[in-house]
């Protein structure tokens, strides 16, 4: 307990300690930042349209490589996870999926961290993986 307090924000943020919920906490922030960075890049990329066909084609060539396709597949995965987990968080914040309020008894398991929420996180990760595979299939015309 004493050690927990000394760790401060690092202890709270440790993804290895609090199970899949803390992993989801990190993934939500990392995917959010990744998607914002992609969005800014996408706006810049599409602005090359205004410089004519040659500029558009040369910009497009950057994404028409294996690395470009892998990057886009990652963007698809980030988008699907962020959406799935975001919907879970909205539902949770509305107060659904926690069960009934009860007296906090030992071992003080938080009712918010239940199987329903854990399942939603795993489903979001699974859907993200499937979407990435589908996206790669579309990009490679499989």
């Amino acid at each position: 307990m004493e050690k927990d307090r000394k760790e401060g924000i690092r202890g709270m943020a440790n993804p290895g300690r609090y199970g899949i919920e803390r992993v989801a906490y990190w993934l939500m922030r990392i995917t959010g930042l990744g998607l914002l960075a992609y969005f800014i890049g996408h706006i810049y990329e599409t602005s090359s349209l205004l410089d004519g066909k040659a500029a558009w084609n040369s910009m497009l060539e950057l994404t028409q490589t294996t690395e470009g396709h892998i990057f886009l597949a990652l963007v698809i995965g980030m988008c699907v996870f962020h959406t799935g987990n975001g919907i879970r968080l909205m539902i949770a914040e509305a107060g659904f999926g926690f069960g009934k309020a009860r007296r906090p008894d030992y071992p003080y398991t938080p009712s918010s961290l239940n199987m329903k929420n854990k399942l939603c996180i795993y489903v979001s990760i699974g859907l993200a993986a499937l979407a990435m595979m589908y996206g790669l299939g579309v990009m490679y015309d499989v």
Partner: peptide
């Protein structure tokens, strides 16, 4: 800034100013 920059592309491309 981002909305203004993106809107510029959308408006100019949709009006054929390319």
């Amino acid at each position: 800034v981002l909305i203004a920059y993106g809107s510029r592309t959308i408006i100019m491309a949709s009006m054929g100013m390319v």
